[in-house]
Design a protein around this nucleic acid. Sequence first.
DNA 1: GACTGGCGTATGGTATACCACATAACTGAG
DNA 2: CTCAGTTATGTGGTATACCATACGCCAGTC
Lengths: 237, 237
Amino acid sequence: MASTLNLRPVDGTFSLGDHIYGVLREAILDMKVYDPETDLRLDERALSDALKISRTPVREALVRLEQDGFVEVRARKGVYVLRKSHGEIMEMITVWAALESMAARLATERASDTEIASLRAMAGRFGSDDAKAHIEEYSEANIAFHQRILELSQCTMLKTIADGLFLHMRAVRRKAMAEKDRSSRSVAEHIGIIEALEARDADRAAKETREHTMRLHDHVRDTWIDLDEVTKKNAAG
Amino acid sequence: MASTLNLRPVDGTFSLGDHIYGVLREAILDMKVYDPETDLRLDERALSDALKISRTPVREALVRLEQDGFVEVRARKGVYVLRKSHGEIMEMITVWAALESMAARLATERASDTEIASLRAMAGRFGSDDAKAHIEEYSEANIAFHQRILELSQCTMLKTIADGLFLHMRAVRRKAMAEKDRSSRSVAEHIGIIEALEARDADRAAKETREHTMRLHDHVRDTWIDLDEVTKKNAAG
DNA sequence: GACTGGCGTATGGTATACCACATAACTGAG
DNA sequence: CTCAGTTATGTGGTATACCATACGCCAGTC
């Protein structure tokens, strides 16, 4: 027809279920999950009513969220947003370390000099003083740095799994990253990782990356305010 | 009523959806997915009819299977069992190597001498000759060995994710493990891993484990008969 | 004979009604 | 007042009907 009429390829994959999944996940991630006063219960009918749709797509989204580990569906009891226990958070960080360590190793073989150089730009954006001043901003840049390493591995699955973990850690970060002296040390360690990558030293890059993340692991382990009791209390109800 | 009638404590978590999920997953794993003549299409209504249930629990199972990466649901087209591409298989093995390498590292700190000794029993069950004779049996023992290492890490998430990968690799193994000379070398490498664990040498255990799995990676990379073309052809239809 | 357009059919997506069980609220006997 | 038994209500689970789109089929046209 009219050659001037070139339109959208039409997103044929759209569905309410997909949309609600994203909406609900964001909503859950924005919840103050670790606030003892937060009501962790979700109501299928209330949700479908609020969203002006039927229960079916809502339930589809909930099934997916359950598999992602965000909620728990208890038959004829209710749907509950899950808190991560201390142990689960430790394990998530451990897996993250495993994945990113491998990613760094692969990056030494697969990433271009230009790409590695871009990492330096990301890490250097904040001096230690700036980091102290803008914790939240630093936290974002920090995550971006780690995600970039995952990307440079050119292994999609490594990054995909890690991204899932990062989502779960979003709420955790607010608590754990609030320490001031960690950020400056973190920046220094990032530089170390970059130097290993630049040297194309696979073993060293893997080691530095792993130890960097495992230091966060140990830090959280030592400073985490245990909410397991609260979790149990709520789970029992 | 009749005191002779004491039955199941009633699994309160039972649901058709859960059950169908397991049934369908097993059925998919038993399919000859890589046989070009296999019909990869699933029919919601045919399934629900065959299982004598409604579409609802079937759809719930399909949603979960889609998130697991076993099937793809295309709106108003159909549900299709997915073939793993060459690249995806490479990535799965890479992630596996990353996870198990970390698991071996943790095992050097967390596993008891007795537990590590049990590994030696598992690995020694088959001499190299036996291995050649009973490929299938060896393959099972091989997987069990690797799963045991994951367990000894005492990191549930490492094992959970790895188990998911193993499921996807089940069909692949039939093709890749059919090489004879691999099994004897594999047994030798297992011994090497065990010795590193016994020596409580974290770095060495991690390295041996990673390199062992990455050798499978390289082997599959070099010998895999590429079915990507077939996959594309089917995906287009 | 090739092509266009309508129409029927198949499919996944959604809405809705109903079910079984869990739990709270209520009732009435003691 | 206490507590067993009953009823009412809320929840997720399931069944079913209907919808919109994708796609093949076929008649009709040129």
